[in-house]
Simulated scan of single mutants.
Amino acid sequence: MTKEYRSEAMAAIHETMEALHEVGAVGKKTMRTFDDTCLTNAQPIPPEVIRALREREHLSQPVFARYLNVSKNLVSDWERGVKRPGGPALRLLAIIEKNGIQAIA
């Protein structure tokens, strides 16, 4: 999975810190701080975009739910705006939006 950085400078700094972490010069706590500073947050996805994404991939709600490891009812709730995806589901939706369902299949 590729990381999305706030800027090219942040990418360079983060990659340097990762190398230092791998050789033991930087601890886990420091790396968590750099992750938080350098990496972008997942952006909310509106209900209509979730539905369009599912339809673009030619998937029914139950099949789409299986790919995301959630219930069909939850996908339905997302598409109606009753609930919003968060955490890992939001990341998976962003990956599907960018690379297609084959990215997680």
Rank of each mutant, 00 (worst) to 15 (best):
V63Y: 00
G87N: 12
T2W: 05
I50H: 10
A65K: 06
E15P: 01
E15H: 07
L59E: 00
Y5K: 10
T30Y: 05
N41P: 02
A103Q: 09
A52R: 15
P62R: 12
L59D: 00
M10V: 04
E22F: 07
N41L: 13
K3Y: 09
T2Y: 07
R84Q: 13
E4S: 11
P44C: 08
R66K: 13
T2S: 11
I13M: 12
L90G: 05
D35A: 02
W78N: 01
T16I: 03
P88W: 04
V26N: 07
A9F: 10
Y67E: 04
G87I: 10
E18K: 15
R84W: 00
E48N: 11
P85D: 07
Y67H: 15
T37R: 13
E22P: 06
F34M: 15
Q43K: 15
L59P: 00
T30A: 14
T40L: 14
M17G: 03
K83T: 12
H58M: 10
I104D: 05
E48I: 06
R91Q: 10
I104F: 05
M31R: 10
I50L: 04
D77F: 06
P44M: 09
V26H: 07
K72I: 01
S60K: 13
L74C: 02
N41A: 14
D77C: 05
R32G: 08
P62W: 14
P88C: 03
Q43M: 13
M17L: 11
R54H: 05
D77V: 00
A11P: 03
M31N: 10
K3F: 09
E55F: 00
S60P: 01
M17F: 07
L93S: 05
E22T: 12
L68H: 14
I95L: 11
A12L: 11
E79D: 10
M17S: 04
R66S: 00
Q43F: 03
L90D: 10
V23A: 04
I96Y: 01
S60Q: 05
C38R: 08
E4L: 13
N41F: 09
V70H: 02
F64Q: 05
E15V: 05
F64D: 00
E97C: 00
G24V: 01
M1N: 11
R56C: 01
G87K: 11
E22H: 09
E79T: 04
K29G: 05
